[in-house]
Design a protein around this nucleic acid. Structure first.
Length: 268
DNA sequence: AAAACTTGCAACCGCCAGTTT
DNA sequence: GAAACTGGCGGTTGCAAGTTT
């Protein structure tokens, strides 16, 4: 009945991947492609579970990964998409060729969220956190953040439960409910305008430093379409990958990828 | 120079929807 | 139709590297 389990976790290796493991996994996938993750570790000679192999491939080894930090434009797009899609990182990542959902999620949690916090904004609602009436100390209400009183009611109709509520799973469920309440394009653009206005005077590094002509105009032009750079990355991803991997994975005894092998056998 | 603290990211965990038997 | 499995997703964690004290 049913199928065999993905893996019994007995005797499987965990933790950071070694160069040798990367080597094995890449060689296997390059030569055989991906048909069934459950069988990959066994066939590739790895003491990992299929899930782990899949994750390693998707987040680190796959050819079309775009390495390096996020550009300002990408960051603005992430915020914009997050306001529309919520915490559906894979959906957000699908708008960024070469970026993984994990990468975007990490970037959100470590950078963007922090920036919102610095501005005294709730990362989820992008509005000042609503505090109980009793807590008059600091006087944190909307009037203290004139720029964030988004006129026209941006996010006004969006009932979003506070991120601070403990129980991440509960939060996940509210995401599903939230997704029906979409923020309109104009609202999002307005939100970004306000956000930039807040960022500029605070001199938060180079973030959103391109001025108002950056986000508003370019973002309105199309719905998060690929910019020239992204298209270029997509087209040349394989070549770039080969180059980048050559430099990254330069361990002894490992022959850098033969491009012919990859392009011919992987069918990409 | 060393300890304490912070940050960033890779990897794991558990859940879920869809698929297979 | 039910049970079991797979692949994928999002949240969380552990740890190395960097920074501050």
């Amino acid at each position: 009945m049913g199928r065999q389990p993905c893996c019994d976790k007995v005797g499987l290796k965990r933790g950071p991947w070694t160069i040798e493991e990367d080597h094995k996994l890449m060689n296997f996938i390059l030569n055989n492609g991906i048909h069934c993750w459950r069988r990959v570790p066994k066939l590739a000679g790895l003491l990992r579970c299929g899930k782990s192999c899949r994750l390693r491939w998707i987040n680190y080894l796959r050819p079309d990964l775009k390495r390096g930090g996020f550009t300002e434009m990408e960051e603005v797009q992430i915020i914009q998409l997050h306001s529309r899609l919520g915490y559906r990182w894979s959906k957000i990542a699908s708008h960024f060729p070469g970026r993984t959902d994990n990468e975007i999620k990490n970037h959100w949690n470590t950078r963007i969220k922090k920036k919102f916090k610095l501005l005294g904004l709730d990362p989820v609602t992008q509005k000042p956190p609503i505090e109980p009436k009793e807590s008059t100390d600091e006087g944190r209400n909307n009037t203290d953040y004139p720029h964030t009183c988004i006129s026209g009611g941006c996010l006004q109709n969006v009932e979003i439960k506070s991120m601070e509520s403990d129980g991440s799973r509960e939060m996940t469920k509210t995401e599903g409910e939230r997704e029906e309440k979409k923020v309109t394009w104009d609202e999002t653009t307005e939100l970004l305008n306000n956000f930039e206005m807040l960022c500029s005077p605070l001199e938060l590094g180079s973030w959103v430093s391109q001025g108002t002509n950056t986000s508003t105009n370019s973002l309105c032009s199309s719905s998060v379409s690929l910019d020239d750079e992204s298209s270029y990355v997509l087209e040349n991803s394989l070549e770039q990958w080969v180059d980048s991997m050559n430099s990254i994975l330069s361990w002894d005894g490992f022959n850098p990828f033969d491009q012919d092998i990859f392009f011919s056998e992987n069918g990409e």
